[in-house]
């Protein structure tokens, strides 16, 4: 059996801060296959972006560490990989799109050069050919008159166009894995749809495995095949989109789904999950969600943390009552 394109297995990431150790990711697990889109869903601070940065190997080594777990890309272990080797993978095999393209692009270098840099550094292209290729990619992601706009600076572009530049830069070398960390959060709704459409299209062309990090459940439903729901650095539930939307098996997922406004129902005030995600410096014992969970019982409040159990085909949930919640339907 060939290994999946990318496998994250029981990944733990922690940060040492002045106030103590922050356990940002606690046992993240998922597989990504070629051409597949998986969505990592969760509130702010649930460990989505940290997971992405761990895969990229761009966590700050001064404060962040990976005490256990593994990340394998085409069978090669990335945790503990020497920085030189990891760097060669970045941008070429595994690339990442960031949320706010205005601050994520270098303000003092023209956008064309920022794209062309990929060809120069990784493919050793000449200045001229890198420029040519950069213009091609920029045109490909829908920048009108790419050749004329090559020398423009990020501040001269609209939000949507900046995000296209970002995408152009990161897909330039046709990476096998593309991580998009809330790629549309900073954009207008209409532009959001265009950017998601573009990402899907590029994925279809190249067979890239796409990891979409978001808290937008609408986006997830339209583009992802599988979902990983994270909470407090843990996987709460994972499975196929349709199966999970139809029959969630975790009270947290139900809470998230209930908080989406629906066109087909008048429900008055939108339900929300009460409370806030736990402070990662001092996580509660037992299931991290028990404080806010309507379903919680005494077992949930004490260790151990509920394990991920299979409730349906490729559908897992970390809840002591997973079977029950699942059977109950939505």
């Amino acid at each position: 059996m060939t290994p999946p394109l990318l496998r994250v297995d029981d990944l733990h990431v922690q940060f040492s801060t002045r106030d103590g150790i922050v356990r940002a990711v606690n046992g993240m697990t998922f597989d990504l296959n070629e051409g597949e889109t998986i969505a990592i869903l969760g509130e702010s601070g649930s460990g989505k972006s940290v997971t992405a940065q761990a895969i990229m190997g761009i966590l700050d080594p001064e404060v962040a560490s990976i005490p256990s777990g593994s990340i394998t890309f085409r069978g090669e272990e990335l945790v503990g990989l020497p920085e030189r080797k990891h760097r060669k993978l970045r941008g070429t095999d595994i690339a990442m799109i960031f949320q706010d393209a205005l601050s994520a692009l270098n303000p003092v270098i023209c956008v064309g050069d920022q794209v062309a840099e990929m060809f120069r550094v990784h493919a050793g292209a000449s200045r001229k050919s890198a420029k040519q290729q950069a213009i091609e990619v920029m045109g490909h992601v829908g920048i009108p008159a790419a050749a004329q706009r090559y020398g423009d600076y990020p501040h001269q572009f609209s939000g949507g166009m900046r995000q296209r530049i970002m995408i152009a830069m990161m897909i330039a070398l046709k990476p096998a894995v593309l991580i998009a960390d809330e790629p549309t959060t900073a954009l207008d709704v209409t532009v959001q749809a265009q950017i998601m459409e573009l990402l899907k299209e590029l994925q279809r062309e190249t067979g890239t495995g796409l990891i979409l990090i978001t808290h937008d459940l609408g986006v997830v439903a339209s583009v992802a095949e599988r979902i990983v729901v994270m909470y407090s650095g843990r996987v709460m539930e994972q499975g196929d989109v349709d199966a999970m939307y139809a029959r969630p098996a975790n009270p947290y997922t139900i809470g998230l789904l209930d908080s989406i406004p629906r066109l087909d129902a008048r429900i008055g005030r939108l339900p929300a999950i009460p409370g806030l995600p736990p402070n990662l410096l001092n996580t509660p014992s037992g299931c991290p969600f028990h404080v806010r969970c309507t379903r919680a019982e005494d077992t949930c409040r004490v260790d151990p943390v509920p394990p991920l159990v299979e409730v349906g085909p490729a559908h897992k949930s970390a809840c002591w009552f997973a079977e029950e919640v699942y059977a109950h339907g939505k």
Partner: peptide, 9 residues
């Protein structure tokens, strides 16, 4: 951070 993600030396 972007520059690092691009794999630049």
């Amino acid at each position: 951070r972007t520059a690092k993600a691009k794999g630049l030396p």
